[in-house]
C-alpha cells in the first residue's frame, strides 16, 4: 500500500524546496485522514487543520535536519505526529477521552519528531533577529537550502567561495555563541 517512489518524490521535493508541490500533495493525501481523526475524537475541523499544520512543520523540520527515517511512510509519520499532538491538546484541555487506537500501524516508536513548540518558535524568532539580516540570509542558504559555498557566493554577491565560507562560519559562530550563553534556551532545545 505504500507508494515508495511517491514518498521519495515528496522527500526530495522537501529537500529541494518545492514546497507547494509537497503541500498540495499532503492536502489531498494526509489532511482528510487527520481531519477524520480529530473530528472523531472531539475536535472540529479547524482544530484538525491546526494539528495538520504542526505535523507538516514537524515533517519538513525532520527531513531538513536529516533526521527523517526514509523507511517510514510520510502518511504514517504525519498521522502519528498529528495523533500525538491531538492527544496532548486534549489532555491540556482536560477533556480526557479514549482516543481510538484502531488505525495505528507501527505503535512502537514515539512520533514526536523535531516538533517545534510555541516556546521554541518564540526563541527561534528572537535568535534569528539577533544575528542580523546578512547572516539570516546566508544561513538560510547554507543550512536550510543546502547550497554550496559557490552558489552562496553568487547569491550574496561575494568575491568567491572563501569569502562565503568564512562569512558562513562567522555567522554560525555568532548564532552558536548567543545560544551557548543562554542556558534556558539550551534546555528548551535539549528537551
Amino acid at each position: 500500500m505504500t507508494d515508495n517512489s511517491k514518498d521519495q518524490e515528496i522527500i526530495d521535493a522537501i529537500r529541494t524546496g518545492n514546497n507547494s508541490f509537497v503541500l498540495n500533495h499532503l492536502y489531498k493525501i494526509a489532511l482528510p485522514k487527520i481531519i477524520r481523526l480529530v473530528v472523531q475524537n472531539n475536535g472540529d475541523e479547524e482544530e484538525a487543520k491546526d494539528v495538520f499544520q504542526d505535523a507538516v512543520i514537524a515533517l519538513f523540520n525532520t527531513v531538513k535536519l536529516n533526521k527523517y527515517d526514509e523507511r517510514k511512510e510520510i502518511d504514517g509519520f504525519l498521522y502519528f505526529v498529528a495523533r500525538n499532538l491531538w492527544i496532548n491538546r486534549i489532555k491540556k484541555k482536560n477533556r480526557q477521552q479514549d482516543i481510538m487506537d484502531t488505525e495505528i500501524k507501527e505503535v512502537n516508536e514515539s512520533p514526536l519528531v523535531s516538533m517545534i513548540s510555541d516556546e521554541k518558535q518564540a526563541a527561534i524568532n528572537e535568535l534569528m533577529n539577533k544575528i542580523g539580516s546578512q547572516c539570516r540570509e546566508l544561513l538560510k542558504y547554507t543550512m536550510h537550502d543546502g547550497l554550496s559555498m559557490k552558489e552562496v557566493a553568487e547569491k550574496m554577491g561575494f568575491a568567491g567561495e572563501t569569502v562565503a565560507k568564512s562569512t558562513h562560519y562567522r555567522c554560525k559562530q555568532k548564532l552558536a555563541t548567543i545560544i551557548q550563553g543562554n542556558k534556558t534556551l539550551i534546555t528548551l532545545f535539549k528537551e
Partner: peptide, 12 residues
C-alpha cells in the same frame, strides 16, 4: 541547536 534554529525559522 543553531541548525535547528535556522531550519525551524525557515520551516515555520
Amino acid at each position: 541547536i543553531a541548525s535547528e534554529v535556522v531550519v525551524g525559522f525557515e520551516v515555520l
